[in-house]
Simulated assay, not measured.
Amino acid sequence: MTETETVTMAMTVPATVCVLIADDEEITRTGLRTLLSAWPGIQVTGEAADGVEAVALAERLRPDVVLMDVRMPGVDGIEATRRLRQSAPPDPPKVVVITTFENDDHVYDALRAGAAGFVLKRSPVEQIAQAVRLVATTDSVLFPDAVRRLVAARPVPPRPPRGAPALTARELEILRLMATGLSNPGIAERLVVSLETVKTHISNLLAKLGAGNRTQAVILAYECGFVVPGAGPVPP
């Protein structure tokens, strides 16, 4: 994430965003807790030293956001993210990966598992706080340029593979706009359709892709060749 990357807010952020910090290094957890607790509108409700503890605490404390390190012993952040997305009913917390290396395959795998976005450990606290606040209620892909850079170096098939879900032309168009980071209102304005129509199309395409959130849908769209970095949807 860079200082120039932003995301359009689509909803009002709650007065207080509850955050769980998961990192195997105590000094990192302490630093993040201290910095984020001093930030207006953020409350750190718990800390976890590994993925197992992160999942257990998330299910008990019900935070809005889990700030998740990807490299932890035992159950890492990737598997913990997958478990949270699959087994924390009825409304699992959003996951923001916090990592040392931007172009880390672990980050890509965490996004693919359902994380909403990522930030770097060396980022200023205001950027980490911004990410936490945004992901709590945004309906846009968090930091789309960073996600695009992660997938750009990976080979993308020229056509959707056999057995890929059949998306309609309108769903493909909306998926492409999602990949640019547009919010639901932004997509509705661009396509001159109602907000409810956009929400219906997004719900349908998420179901077809088996995606739990918009970032995961964009990752899968790149992998299937439905969308390529810097271009529109692949023609049928």
Rank of each mutant, 00 (worst) to 15 (best):
M1F: 03
E3M: 07
E5L: 01
V7F: 08
M11W: 01
V19R: 02
L20M: 10
A22V: 09
A22H: 12
T28H: 06
T28L: 13
T30Q: 15
L32R: 08
T34G: 15
L36M: 10
G46E: 06
G46V: 10
A48N: 13
V52T: 14
A56L: 14
E59G: 13
L61Q: 04
R62W: 13
L67G: 06
D69R: 05
D69N: 13
D69Q: 08
V70Y: 09
M72C: 08
M72F: 14
M72V: 15
G74F: 08
V75W: 00
V75D: 03
G77H: 04
P89N: 00
P90T: 07
P92G: 06
V96N: 02
I98F: 13
I98E: 12
T99W: 09
T100Q: 15
F101Y: 13
E102C: 01
E102I: 10
H106G: 08
V107G: 00
Y108C: 00
G114Y: 00
G114Q: 03
A116Q: 10
F118Q: 04
V119Y: 04
K121T: 00
K121D: 01
R122K: 11
S123P: 12
I128A: 07
I128E: 01
A129L: 03
V132N: 06
V135T: 12
V135N: 04
L142S: 08
F143C: 09
V147P: 04
V151E: 01
A152N: 04
A153G: 15
P157H: 01
P157K: 00
R159E: 12
T168N: 02
A169M: 03
E171D: 05
M178P: 02
A179F: 14
T180H: 05
T180A: 06
N184E: 09
N184M: 13
A188Y: 14
V193R: 01
E196H: 02
K199Q: 15
H201F: 09
L205G: 06
L209W: 02
G210N: 07
G212M: 05
C224M: 12
C224A: 07
G225R: 02
V227R: 03
P233A: 08
